[in-house]
Structure formats: structure tokens, C-alpha cells
Design a protein around this nucleic acid. Structure first.
Lengths: 150, 150
DNA sequence: GCTATATTTCGCCATATAACGAAATAAGAG
DNA sequence: CTCTTATTTCGTTATATGGCGAAATATAGC
């Protein structure tokens, strides 16, 4: 693991959305549409982010039908990264931001992936689990699936 | 101690020159002019870099007369960062790039800091330990101080 | 084969970042 | 106080990066 590779991994980790994505798929494998829903970004943007994480050997990808699943790389090319991710996860369990992500993730996992993709396709419809503009802003509503844009 | 702090540290580490600077002053404290010589950048640029590292709590700074010394922080902002930096150091000891830096550093440390600064002030003089354009390119000449631009 | 759809690639735009040099600041030396 | 000098701050510029939407790709189902 050279200087170059290490630097690539650090660059990959230096974006907030990528770090959130990495943490998210460190718990279980996720398909792009699920990560897209979590980050509230365009699918193309998420795809790019995941590509960067994959090129840095931080995540593995697996194709199943039309879906592509990403998960934290099992054999990190870089040992430092495994330590970092584990330390991060240990540390962030209490972090409000990551808590919110986990709550949102619980909701997302409860949904049908196809439903997620359908909503993301007709992109205009302000994709959000919450009806109001500010999605799951503060004390996240721990996993209630019966939420929909009104 | 939060997601934000860890992210700031990761951002700080995601630049090649900053990573080199951090590694360099993880061995011993260095003043700006020494780091400037190592990285072959303008002093103002190095100052900015060190400021970013300091704000991320990755380095401490100490003022002594006109010189300001930087060294690896003793107490990092977040635990993940501590682990990461230690792992990085352990991992990169064998890396050729970092080896070259270490060799160059040995030369720099052998020089009088005032001499370094003097050369950096009249910036035009293509600051380099070696007379030729490519500085200490490959198998660095371990510590010989009697080198000067001809 | 054709259609639908999950993901990626491409082109574009706005912003962030790293670099420099010039000017400002801070601290010894005269 | 004045001069020198090590470092920082400021202003500018070129490039890198993150974001989107449109078009391309790949795969399941007909």
C-alpha cells in the first residue's frame, strides 16, 4: 500500500457525503438507490461517489440483477482504513448526525427498493422520507415506514 | 470530537503536500522554512498548509524567537484520527516517496535554518538542495551538508 | 427482438482549493 | 526607534471537485 494509494483513500474519505455513504454500507450492503435516498443526491452523483470509494478499495460492489450493491471492503487494501472505519463507527454511535443517518437508513431498508428507484426516476418529486422540506432534521423519528410526501 | 472534527482532519490529510508535511513533523519538530525546503513550495503556501493542519488539531505549533516550530499533535481531536495517523506512519515507513522525504529531511536538518530562510527569501534562486533541477530524485544522498547551489 | 428500469458515463456549471507574490505582522539585533 | 527577517495574511489565478440532467449502458421481463 503505497503513498499514492493511501492518499487516494484519504481523498476519498475527505468528502462528507462519501464518508456518510461509507459508514452506511459498513453496516450492511446497500444498493445505489438506497444510498441515494439516504444522501438525498442525484443518482448520478451517488454513482460517482461510490466509484471513487471503490477505486480507493474502500468498498466492494456486487451486481445482482439490475441492482448493484456496495459494502465496506472486506479486505482493505489499506490497514489504516479499516482501523479508521472501526474507530469512526465506535466513536460516531453517539454523533447526532450519524444517528440521524441510521434512523433514515432504517426507514429506507423498510421500503421496497423498486419504490425508491421509481421515485428517484421522476426526480422532480423532492425525494424525501419526510413530507416537510427539512428531512428528519433533528430528533429522528426512529423507524416509522408509513411516511410519504403528502 | 464529532463527525465534523473527524471530517476536518480527513480533509486536512487529503492533500499530498500536507500529508508529507505531517509525516515530516511526526519525527521531530520542524520550523516553516524547513518544511518549505522539503516541499519545495512558497513559504506562504506552506504556512497555509500548516494552518490547516493545526486547525484540524493534527499538529501543535510552538514559537521560539522568529521561528515557529510544528510537530505532530500530542492529543488529537478525535480517537479515529489518532489511530489513523499512527497507522499511516507505520504503513508508510517503507514507502519510497516517504523514504526520499526522510533523506531530504536529513540534509535539511544538517543545514543552518537561517541559511534556508535566506535562500527562500530571494525566491528566484530555484531553492533546491541539489544543484541540478531534479532535486534528490531517486536514491537520496543520505545527509551531506556541504551542498550548495553553484 | 423490444420495453422498462437501475446504474453509469458524459457535458456542463458553480464552488472550493492550492498555488503564487505582495503586503502586513511579529520578533530579534543594531 | 530602526532594520532585518521569519511567518502570516491578503488578493489573484488556475485547476480540482461536487453537483445536476441528459444520454448511454446493462439487465430483467415480455
Amino acid at each position: 500500500m503505497s503513498f499514492r494509494d493511501t492518499l487516494a483513500a484519504l481523498k476519498a474519505l475527505s468528502d462528507e457525503n462519501r464518508l456518510r455513504a461509507l459508514l452506511a454500507c459498513s453496516e450492511r450492503e446497500l444498493c445505489v438507490c438506497q444510498i441515494t435516498e439516504l444522501l438525498q443526491l442525484a443518482p448520478s452523483t451517488v454513482s460517482k461517489h461510490m466509484s471513487i470509494l471503490r477505486q480507493a478499495d474502500l468498498v466492494d460492489s456486487r451486481k445482482e440483477g439490475r441492482w448493484i450493491y456496495y459494502r465496506l471492503s472486506t479486505e482493505f487494501a489499506t490497514a489504516p482504513v479499516r482501523g479508521l472505519v472501526e474507530a469512526l463507527r465506535a466513536q460516531l454511535t453517539a454523533d447526532p448526525k450519524w444517528k440521524r443517518d441510521r434512523a433514515a437508513l432504517a426507514e429506507i431498508l423498510a421500503m421496497d427498493p423498486e419504490e425508491l428507484c421509481r421515485r428517484q426516476t421522476k426526480a422532480g418529486s423532492k425525494e424525501s422520507l419526510c413530507g416537510d422540506g427539512e428531512c428528519c432534521a433533528s430528533d429522528a423519528p426512529t423507524a416509522g415506514k408509513e411516511r410519504e410526501r403528502s
